[in-house]
């Protein structure tokens, strides 16, 4: 798969209450409308807990961040939660630079995100 493409794998758990989106490829100006729409659909069904796994994402820019910010807002407005999984590297650095690591609940692993444990602190 070219890193310019974006693949979204969606898995549901807890009887459909927990939605886990795994993104692969590039989340940028070209692909963020697709992700925005997918995440919005997930939050439109009422209270849902969303986990977005970015560990396989090659590239994330400000428009991709905008899609995540919008989904976070809608999920919390409906009483749900919004969590991110990231590896160390450029995406974690981006969340730190923008201060969004203090806004999003960010974890290293899906297991930590499920259990709400070992949330990553801001590092800068």
């Amino acid at each position: 798969m070219s890193q310019d493409e974006l693949h979204i794998d969606l898995k549901t758990e807890d009887g459909g209450e927990l939605l886990i989106f795994k993104l692969r490829g590039s989340l940028d100006l070209a692909t963020s409308p697709t992700v925005r729409a997918a995440l919005m659909e997930g939050t439109e069904k009422g209270k849902r807990d969303l986990v977005v796994d970015l560990t396989q994402l090659e590239f994330l820019d400000s428009t991709g961040l905008g899609a995540l910010i919008g989904a976070h807002r809608r999920a919390t407005e409906h009483g749900g939660t919004f969590r991110l999984i990231v590896s160390d590297g450029p995406i974690a650095r981006l969340l730190n630079i923008t201060g969004l690591i203090r806004v999003f609940a960010v974890y290293h692993t899906l297991d930590d995100a499920r259990k709400n444990q070992s949330r990553l602190p801001a590092s800068i």
Binding site: D61, S62, L65, G66, I69, I97, T98, G99, L100, V103
Partner: peptide, 15 residues
């Protein structure tokens, strides 16, 4: 200055 956290647009030039 960083845009207020949670704003969906306006991060590009800051970055």
């Amino acid at each position: 200055a960083a845009p207020p956290p949670g704003r969906e647009r306006g991060l590009g030039i800051f970055l």
